[in-house]
Amino acid sequence: MRTYYRGPDAVVTSELFVWRTTPTRIFAIRELRNVGITCTVVDRSRPPTAPAAAGSVALSVAVWPAVETPAMIALGVLAVAVPAIAIAAWWRVRPRRWELHATYRGGEVVLFASTNARVFNQVARALRRSIEESHPHGTWTV
């Protein structure tokens, strides 16, 4: 039996896929069909800067008629731009959950899930190699 990946989170061999979770999940490679990858956002809450951005916009709109100096114009632009940049950065770095899905013995299952992209990709690559060895024509989908 050849081992493709062995780590604290999963083991992938030529015969078995083991996800070391509670409880441990064990899948026979030969019985896996339609294996695929999905990615979901873990945290769907609003960014913490949303109230500040709303307040900055409201304040800027309220004092805009009184703005006469370049310094006040610059402060007004910063009051809108800084929260907008913070919100854009928050949306960019939200944690993602990567999942391996498959059909196993007639039912849909999650084979493996992780928020660590590097580990997830190592496990997915190992599973792909194992499937390619056991299924000559493969059943991997993306």
Rank of each mutant, 00 (worst) to 15 (best):
A79Y: 02
I29E: 01
F27W: 05
M72L: 12
W91H: 15
R92Q: 13
Q122A: 10
A28W: 05
L16G: 00
V80T: 13
A28E: 13
S56D: 02
A10P: 05
H135A: 13
T139N: 14
P51H: 07
E15V: 07
Q122G: 08
A117V: 13
L16R: 12
P65S: 03
I73F: 13
I37F: 06
P48S: 02
I26Q: 04
G7V: 07
V109M: 08
P65H: 09
R33L: 10
R96A: 11
R2F: 10
L32C: 00
V123K: 06
G36C: 04
R33C: 01
V63F: 11
R44K: 11
V82S: 04
G76D: 13
A126W: 12
V35I: 10
V35W: 01
I37A: 01
A81L: 15
A79F: 08
T3E: 12
M72G: 13
D9E: 11
R125D: 15
I37N: 04
T24V: 15
W19K: 02
H137Q: 15
V57K: 00
A124Y: 11
A102M: 07
A54Q: 10
A86V: 03
A71I: 13
L127C: 05
V63K: 00
W91N: 15
W64N: 10
F112P: 07
N121K: 11
